[in-house]
Design a protein around this nucleic acid. Structure first.
Lengths: 241, 241
DNA sequence: ACGCCATGAATGTCAGACAATTAAATGTCT
DNA sequence: AGACATTTAATTGTCTGACATTCATGGCGT
């Protein structure tokens, strides 16, 4: 992996060297790196510089460090959860910094989410359907805060993508959808709109239950359209304020 | 953003503090952080510790540092390209470490890719169609290496997702699909299979041209099935070896 | 006005020290 | 012999102070 313009910094160069050792398989999961002192010797730099390099890798969850005798830096086993958390941080920041319109974000979110409907209808399990129904019940509570409603909404859609029974797909979709949540949260939900959304959630679960791809897809499309409508009315309200 | 079990390290704690300042908007893009010496004072630690914290943030592209007078650490503007590169690194590593079956990866890849067909058929531009045709011509060259064929394949699918005309969708899809390329590269392409793939690529472009969603979707489904077949035959060949 | 250079502020690096932690080796008691 | 306590060595985490390097700015001389 060639580095961009250049790495005018020793610590960055050392980090890159070790990173490619990991990515290209010369260091395997669980392997212990040489101690900081040894690395400093090998690369002809001071320990401080090596440490900065290691911190860079630790920030990407590529390595983990343990203290004490026979501690050191170990190639980390990247779990789905860690990877997803990082993806969400990066994507959230990206979306927050680039003046994404609500409509574009919404369109992307539902396009991604609909990519799992066919598999989800085929493979949905009773356990996941039950989880979705539980979230719907939560959402129907009359005195629920907007925050809690959104959290439950995320959990519902998370369960939906899990229905596809493909962990790789779940990882990508859950990460993508979750990253867009802050943009979705521009909307303040009225009792009326909550009821509408809950109805559509019910339709999705019902469609999955009878393995009817088309009805699930239709419900998601309707949910997308409705969400965009809500977003636009919020924008309009702000404009006239 | 609460940290998991604990961060028993000062440099990690400081990095987390600054990170949340950025993610939650208390520091804006382009803002200059205090100098390392000032940060060290504020947090009551040494400059070395602050530097390790800053390197962690730099590794996530959250900040960039400039040397010289009036240099320092600045909140970075995260570009789509930087974000995608990070997403690809993380996802590639994740997939490489978790014994993903070829079939599961393939299924996820095409499910994601098909999420843009409807928008792509509606919005495809002549420029992007031309780009796709150029890649097909490249792929048809008789003396092309496997590596170059795969690279062109990535470029082709990249153009396909760009057809959807939604930059957020492009970002997520291009990253996801690219991250799975190493798994796809298990396949060694024969002249026969290349011809088959190129035919399907042609069908995709033709479908986009006449804005026929169904035919594009069908071509992608066929491509998925064919890719899985190829993968299985490779596995079978290895098993009997 | 123009170019050159000193200055100062900042990061990048180094060397050496000490504290904290931890597993393993060693010692000690029953 | 076995259980428990202690020492030891390796390693990371942090601190201190120093020097090198980079670069915008402003003053100086011509």
């Amino acid at each position: 992996m060639k580095n961009q313009t250049a790495a005018p910094s020793l610590s960055a160069a050392i980090a890159d060297a070790i990173r490619s050792d990991i990515v290209e398989g010369r260091l395997l999961v669980g392997d212990r790196l040489p101690s900081e002192a040894e690395l400093a010797d090998q690369h002809g730099v001071s320990r401080a510089t090596v440490r900065e390099a290691l911190k860079r890798l630790a920030a990407q969850s590529l390595i983990r460090t343990e203290r004490g005798a026979f501690g050191g830096a170990f190639v980390n086993h990247l779990s789905y959860e860690e990877a997803r958390a990082q993806q969400v941080t990066t994507s959230t920041l990206l979306l927050g910094m680039n003046a994404i319109s609500f409509q574009v974000a919404c369109e992307a979110r539902y396009a991604l989410e609909r990519s799992c409907t066919a598999l989800a209808a085929e493979r949905r399990t009773d356990a996941l359907l039950a989880a979705m129904r539980t979230e719907i019940d939560t959402q129907a509570a009359p005195d629920l805060s907007d925050e809690a409603f959104c959290a439950s909404d995320v959990a519902f859609h998370r369960a939906l993508v899990d229905c596809a029974g493909n962990e790789v797909l779940s990882y990508h979709l859950a990460g993508s959808v979750e990253a867009m949540q802050p943009l979705m949260n521009m909307i303040t939900f009225t009792a009326r709109s909550r009821a509408e959304i809950i109805d559509l959630h019910r339709a999705i679960v019902a469609g999955l239950e009878i393995r009817d791809v088309a009805s699930v897809d239709r419900a998601l499309a309707t949910l997308e359209a409705y969400t965009i409508t809500l977003g636009q009315s919020v924008l309009k309200a702000r404009a006239t304020r």
